[in-house]
Design a protein around this nucleic acid. Structure first.
Length: 884
RNA sequence: AGGCACGUAGCUCAGGGGGAGAGCACUACCUUGACGCGGUAGGGGUCUGGGGUUCAAAUCCCCACGUGCCUACCA
């Protein structure tokens, strides 16, 4: 069969789109919920609908795709569930910005109209990231794409909320929460990023009522003093003993504050006296609860000073701080100000400084759920890989606090709670209630708030499969096989999925959790838009091709280490892609119409036996690497094998056979060449889906997708130690000749004669493969000698038991050759000395395992013999030079 | 303040008790019928420092220094 010649270089652009379409048309990504094959399932970490593909997504989804594609080829029934997250705050922010461009805000629009706008937005832009995932080659089952706000998943959310409420695990409470004044919503503790902040510590004097004394408090937030309702000191603090139980007067305001004693106060910090603002500080609130203090909210939902702040009302909280400090100073209350670094909470979405605020919110009592989640990992029902992350997982779950789940935004799952206007009853129900369960009143008002986005994400592994309906998907694919994610959402997402999965499915959501690295820039900085160091994966894919990019990510994905991505590396791997292309091009040119899928004959030639033997090892090691999520080992062993074993040695070795005149031998080699390349393509396909598919269609006859081809399995009967040994000899001799050539600056084109001395056995091996060595080393003749005088005027080398001489009458540079031999000797001597020293050490001989001693002895003998030969060669040369 | 990683060739990183490795970069040579996105050869490292365990340490342990990250209610 005639096949067109491939172009000289691989051009990824048109190829990629073509094959992705083909895979989809063929339905190759589809999972079959009725298939009897063993299931393998993954749920995608759903990207935000507002998102664009960044490096983190690219890595995350490349790794998942590698697993899915390999498993599919191994015969598993693979389900990779894709989808997006509605990302409450982020999406609402985006649409609000859009509105702002029209001089509108959401309140002008009203809740219903606003929600419509968000859905419109989603229809237009929400598919962005999905298309970008397709561009990456992700083999998700798109027929099962999910969105956290769609009906089915919303039903799951409501069901879970109602159940947890009925079980007493969801409750409503009035307490200090994290408040973002810009997003005007409560946040969970996790959604607050602590960041270093260069602030000040202000020392403020409070006078004591009915006395001459005063006491000084230290604070970083003077503006909150307007809401102070006490001053606290440590009960055992002698300095303040006399003041306990008396009252202090609040400067600027004049309010009288009780001076209370509480062990929470740190005597070492500041002055040992603490101003207590229960409405704006979590600790102060606790103290307030204990001592029955009033709460005065002086900062409102937008971060503006409230009416309770008296003359400061209407000021922004930061402006107010400045004003308060000025006034304190003017009135002599400010003793001193120190620069002070503090870690302050910031909104993880908009970076605004968080305001701790007293507020009524919904909470999940997570402790009992967390206990289950810890147990499952402790019992090994879910493995966290690498295991070092287990510690983080346990630490967090052990110290977990109740989860604030209500958000004061509009875009999200509305809390299914209604309040009766007549009797105040709270109704929590699966279906919207028509009347109050207690007083039968019909005026029910639904809670305005929506749920934390992560609440719905926590249900993702089972809600995407149809829960609460008992679907065949759940039956087959839950628990999922593995969750692939980065550590930054271990708590946000993984731990919560564990809790919800265990609680509602009675089974862990995944068998394995593979935690991969974070992608950073070449300097190790986190990539971020504000730093301007973002490398856009889409640009990279345009520039280098998706396969080169994916290969780079896989090759870098070593466990437990961040990835520093430099563009040069991607370029390097593009060369590898091109190398594969050209190896295939060569193969295609030399197959005479044989195809990749013809049965493979038993190998006869050394090169064939050797490449198949090496291939089996690569398959075995590669499969093991993949099964233990060592993606980098997988990638680099394939790189090494393809480039160095297959291209550098094997292809060169078989050229004479392919160009030669022995039809039978040529035929066998063609088929083994075809088979080896086929295995390489199939092994590489999970990492580099596009080029392997393209080449597969050029080289295979059946027209099917490489996705449906079987993943290579190692055949131990093809492992041939003898062939590997013989190849080692051939490669050694070849390299030695090339080395002399290189160091002596002899043109690669010059044909050289070589004379080899050595014992019978090695010579026979060499003789059997003499023509290969002649070709590889560009030798005109290869003369084998049992003994006799060594050639004069020759460059020489030692390989194993063999001595190699290249007679270079007329062109030998004595000095250069002398230097070369001395260098070799110089490398050998310390190594031999080290081995000999070990062998004279009684302790080593007595305590080291026998095989280590034997190995050391063998090494010493070998190096000794080699050194002796080299020294003889050097002496001969020096004598000769002296005699001239 | 605690915890977790990491410090190996100029750069990016593998390795992980018994002969220092890769890719890129560098140097020299090369239109050898797949590939110059290539070939061949070469140079380059007291494996951060110091102790300890061991017959043997880049590898295990301790300490120090440096870097990064996570967690925490000292205002």
């Amino acid at each position: 069969m005639e096949r067109p010649l491939l172009p000289k270089a691989y051009e990824p652009q048109e190829v990629e789109a073509k094959w992705y379409r083909f895979w989809q048309e063929q339905g190759l990504f589809r999972a079959d919920e009725t298939s009897p094959e063993p299931p393998f399932s993954i749920v995608i970490p759903p990207p935000n609908v507002t998102g664009d593909l960044h490096m983190g997504h690219a890595l995350n989804n490349t790794l998942q795709d590698i697993l899915c594609r390999a498993r599919r080829m191994q015969g598993y029934n693979v389900l990779w569930v894709p989808g997006t997250d509605h990302a409450g705050i982020a999406t609402q922010n985006v649409v609000e910005r859009q509105l702002a461009g029209e001089n509108l805000d959401r309140h002008q629009l009203g809740r219903e109209k606003f929600i419509e706008r968000v859905w419109d937005w989603r229809r237009i832009y929400g598919g962005n990231i999905i298309n970008q995932l397709k561009r990456l080659g992700a083999s998700c089952d798109w027929s099962r794409e999910r969105f956290t706000m769609e009906d089915g998943l919303s039903l799951a959310v409501r069901r879970v909320f109602v159940s947890l409420y009925e079980q007493g695990l969801i409750y409503r409470g009035y307490r200090i929460i994290n408040w973002c004044p810009r997003c005007t919503t409560a946040l969970a503790n996790l959604e607050v990023d602590a960041e270093d902040y260069g602030g000040h510590l202000y020392y403020i004097r409070y006078s004591v009522v009915d006395g001459e004394e005063s006491l000084v408090v230290a604070t970083t937030r003077p503006e909150t003093m307007l809401g102070d309702t006490a001053v606290a000191v440590h009960p055992q603090d002698e300095r303040y003993r006399a003041l306990q139980g008396r009252k202090a007067r609040l400067p600027l305001v004049g309010r009288e504050l009780p001076i209370i004693a509480d062990p929470h106060v740190d005597r070492e910090f500041g002055t040992g006296a603490l101003k207590v603002t229960p409405a704006h500080d979590a600790n102060d609130y606790e103290i307030g609860q204990k001592h029955g203090l009033d709460t005065v909210r002086v900062i409102d939902d937008r971060g503006i000073m409230s009416g309770a702040a008296g003359s400061y009302a209407g000021l922004d909280r930061f402006a107010c701080r400045t004003k308060v400090v000025e006034d304190l100073k003017a009135q002599g209350y400010l003793l001193k100000t120190e620069a002070y670094r503090i870690r302050l909470g910031h909104c993880y979405r908009c970076k605004t400084v968080i305001e701790p605020t007293l507020s009524e919110q919904w909470f999940v009592a997570v402790k009992p759920l967390a206990a289950e989640a810890m147990g499952a990992v402790r019992e090994g029902r879910t493995r966290i890989i690498p295991a070092m992350w287990e510690k983080n997982y346990f630490d967090w779950l052990e110290n977990i606090e109740d989860w604030c789940i209500s958000r004061q935004i509009w875009w999200g799952h509305r809390i299914p709670a209604w309040y009766c206007r007549e009797c105040g009853e709270v109704v929590v129900a699966l279906t919207d209630p028509a009347a109050c369960g207690r007083c039968k009143g019909a005026t029910l008002v639904q809670d305005e708030d929506v749920l934390d986005t992560w609440f719905s994400s926590a249900l993702w592994p089972f809600s995407t499969m149809g829960w609460p309906v008992e679907t065949p998907e759940l039956e087959r694919f839950y628990p999922t096989s593995v969750l692939v994610t980065a550590f930054d959402i271990l708590f946000f997402w993984v731990a919560r999925m564990m809790m919800m999965g265990l609680h509602f499915m009675g089974e862990v959501p995944f068998r394995d959790v593979y935690i991969h690295a974070l992608v950073r820039d070449a300097e190790g900085q986190k990539m971020s838009k504000s730093r301007g160091n973002v490398i856009d994966p889409l640009v990279i894919m345009d520039r280098y091709g998706t396969d080169a990019f994916r290969f780079t990510l896989a090759a870098f994905a070593a466990q437990g280490r961040d990835i520093r991505l430099a563009e040069e590396r991607i370029e390097g791997y593009r060369h590898f892609v091109n190398k594969l292309w050209n190896a295939s091009r060569f193969t295609l040119m030399n197959l005479d119409g044989s195809s990749l899928d013809e049965p493979q004959p038993p190998p006869e030639q050394l090169a064939d036996r050797w490449i198949l033997s090496t291939l089996q090892r690569v398959i075995r090691e590669g499969t093991e690497a993949l099964e233990s999520y060592r993606f980098n080992d997988y990638a680099s062993s394939l790189y090494q094998f393809t480039w160095h074993e297959f291209c550098d040695w094997y292809l060169e070795l078989i050229k004479p056979v392919l160009y030669g005149e022995h039809p039978r031998g040529r035929r066998i080699t063609q088929l083994i060449l075809a088979h080896s390349l086929s295995a390489i393509l199939r092994l590489l396909h999970p990492i580099m889906p596009f080029i392997t598919e393209e080449l597969w269609h050029h080289l295979a006859v059946n027209g099917g997708s490489i996705m449906s081809a079987a993943f290579p399995q190692a055949d131990p009967t093809l492992i041939a130690p003898q062939a590997e040994k013989e190849m080692t000899l051939i490669m050694g001799v070849t390299t030695a000749v090339r080395n002399i050539r290189g160091e002596m600056n002899i043109s690669p084109a010059a044909q050289l004669a070589a004379v080899v001395y050595g014992p019978e056995g090695s010579l026979q091996l060499l003789e059997a493969h003499a023509s290969s060595v002649r070709d590889l080393a560009r030798l005109s003749t290869l003369t084998l000698c049992r003994d006799g005088d060594r050639p004069r005027l020759a460059a020489s080398a030692v390989v194993g038991e063999l001595e190699i001489f290249l007679p270079l009458e007329g062109i030998l540079d004595f000095q250069e050759e002398t230097r070369r031999l001395q260098k070799e000797i110089g490398k050998l001597e310390p190594e031999l000395a080290r081995a000999k020293k070990k062998l004279t050490n009684e302790d080593f001989l007595g305590r080291a395992p026998a095989e280590v001693v034997a190995k050391e002895r063998e090494k010493s003998d070998r190096l000794g013999a080699k050194l002796q030969k080299l020294q003889e060669q050097l002496h001969r040369l020096v004598k000769l030079a002296g005699g001239r």
